[in-house]
Design a binder for these strands. Structure first.
Lengths: 125, 125
DNA sequence: CACCACCGTCTACATATGTAATCGTTTTAC
DNA sequence: GTAAAACGATTACATATGTAGACGGTGGTG
């Protein structure tokens, strides 16, 4: 069994809809994406099929159609993508990643505040 | 002009050699990668060509051959990859990314120490 | 019951990528 | 000087991806 189903960018857009809305028919996905993407129905159907084949979503027959629901969770996806990047670029560690942003002054005031709070909480353990 | 040359995974391996070694002939790249990859010379030549076409490296003729050197810097690459991920997954912000790791207890003791130090330094500004 | 709308499936096609063999030209070694 | 070696350039080919049209079956409507 493949560890993580390797969801592509376009596929992730579809996953996002399912993560938000839970089980739904392809038509509902199409509707949900109508505004933010210029995709044809056909495109979305293809993406759903590919996600199904990859095992990232599941399809339960409901009458004449299918209800698609996510198998891969958003958290799992966030983890595999994030860890993948850290492994490839920063030796798998978080601190060097943050240090990179710090060095280039890409940390907003808000980021810094939130990071400070995070660290404090962790210290309390 | 394309903003960032979109370097692929395999291409990034070649870039890494150039970032370490500076300008070098393709043969030197092949030698450098001999241990860590099972790539044929031909493969490495192809990757160098593609990097050249993308503008990520430059080739200066030195006698009968070329010396390849990086145009895209490692820092630029780290930035575009990292920011790309943050944009796609975490609303472009660093703190939520770190929070994700924190939530899943993926921050090592060492990460936490380094993050703490980073934040302290930033506070001194 | 005939026909159309709807739905999933199949096919399509361009580009990117991973991986490599082959070609053509220029050197170099004998 | 002729053959072999070395190089970059060209061609190859499978898979993944983005994007979509065509096809086929089935259930609803008149």
């Amino acid at each position: 069994m493949k560890n993580q189903p390797a969801v592509s960018d376009a596929e992730a857009v579809v996953m996002a809809v399912l993560w938000r809305g839970g089980a739904m028919a392809s038509e509902a996905v199409v509707t949900a994406l109508a505004t933010e993407r210029q995709w044809q129905e056909s495109t979305i159907k293809t993406l759903l099929s590919r996600l199904l084949k990859k095992g990232a979503v599941r399809a339960r027959k409901q009458g004449r159609r299918y209800l698609y629901s996510p198998v891969l969770t958003r958290e799992q996806w966030l983890s595999s993508e994030s860890e993948g990047l850290l492994d490839r670029l920063f030796g798998g560690r978080v601190a060097p990643f943050v240090a990179h942003f710090s060095k280039h002054r890409k940390l907003s005031r808000r980021d810094i505040e939130e990071l400070k709070r995070l660290i404090e909480e962790l210290d309390d353990d």
